[in-house]
């Protein structure tokens, strides 16, 4: 198993009251799975994503990533985990505005200490992979929403992470561009990437092969998508 979560709990201090966001989540995700995590706001899906992405640590319970107990890691080790194992794709792209696409994609490799020349080579490849070979020197403000999200995907891919963690990746895009991005995820999945998708849109979740519903901080349903799922249809035209 790539990810193993056992009885994961997370409480937040709101003023003087402890508010439980996750009340005991058990979850296993294997290599090359394509999982959608769904749920209404307040269901704990953002909290779960933060913990899966090593941005936050649980209050109790265990989170094993590749057999490493993430809850035991210190801040530097968490940074290294995010750098090497997690590829984030955000709703609002989160690119650095004053840098070119290429520079944005190079950034994670820089923090990984990859040498300049190799950094550039790998970043160029990642941008070519998402179809932006001709936009490398453009700044985010000179790109369309879909292109920006592609740069973000390239940035997530460039370190060859264990999982791609996409938080509402189509939330800021029109539906046509959104579908294009989802098709890109499909291809990446077929190339062997493990993808975790956080969304509240059913249409988008249907691209995944497995859907987990969260409700009130607990897993409500966890099921494989049936044959009608959009990605299956695309796989066999």
């Amino acid at each position: 198993m790539l990810i193993e979560i056992k009885n994961l709990k997370k409480d937040y201090l709101m003023g003087e009251i402890m508010v439980p966001a996750l009340k005991g989540v058990d979850l296993k995700i294997g290599k090359n799975e394509y999982v959608a995590i769904m749920g209404p706001s307040g269901s704990g899906k953002s909290t779960l994503m933060n913990i899966l992405g090593c941005l936050d640590t649980p209050t109790s319970g265990q989170y094993l990533f590749n057999k490493i107990d993430v809850s035991e890691l210190n801040d530097n080790e968490l940074s290294a985990m995010r750098n090497r194992e997690i590829g984030f794709v955000f709703q609002s792209f989160n690119l650095l505005p004053r840098m070119s696409s290429l520079h944005n994609v190079e950034l994670p490799l820089m923090y990984a200490g990859v040498h300049k020349l190799e950094r550039k080579e790998r970043s160029v490849k990642a941008l070519e992979r998402v179809g932006l070979a001709d936009r490398m020197m453009h700044k985010p403000s000179e790109l369309s929403g879909g292109q920006r999200q592609r740069v973000a995907v390239a940035r997530a891919l460039v370190t060859n992470p264990g999982i791609l963690l996409a938080d509402e990746p189509t939330g800021a895009l029109d539906s046509k561009t959104g579908i294009e991005i989802m098709q890109l995820f499909d291809e990446l999945h077929r190339e062997g990437n493990t993808i975790i998708l956080i969304t509240h849109e059913k249409d988008i979740a249907e691209f995944a092969h497995r859907t987990i519903h969260l409700k009130d901080g607990m897993i409500f349903t966890d099921e494989l998508n049936n044959k009608n799922s959009k990605s299956k249809k695309k796989q066999i035209p």
Partner: peptide, 16 residues
């Protein structure tokens, strides 16, 4: 702040 958050998410350590 946002820039710092992005850098941290993609692997920057505190010392960076």
């Amino acid at each position: 702040t946002r820039e710092i958050g992005i850098r941290r998410a993609i692997g920057a350590r505190k010392t960076d």
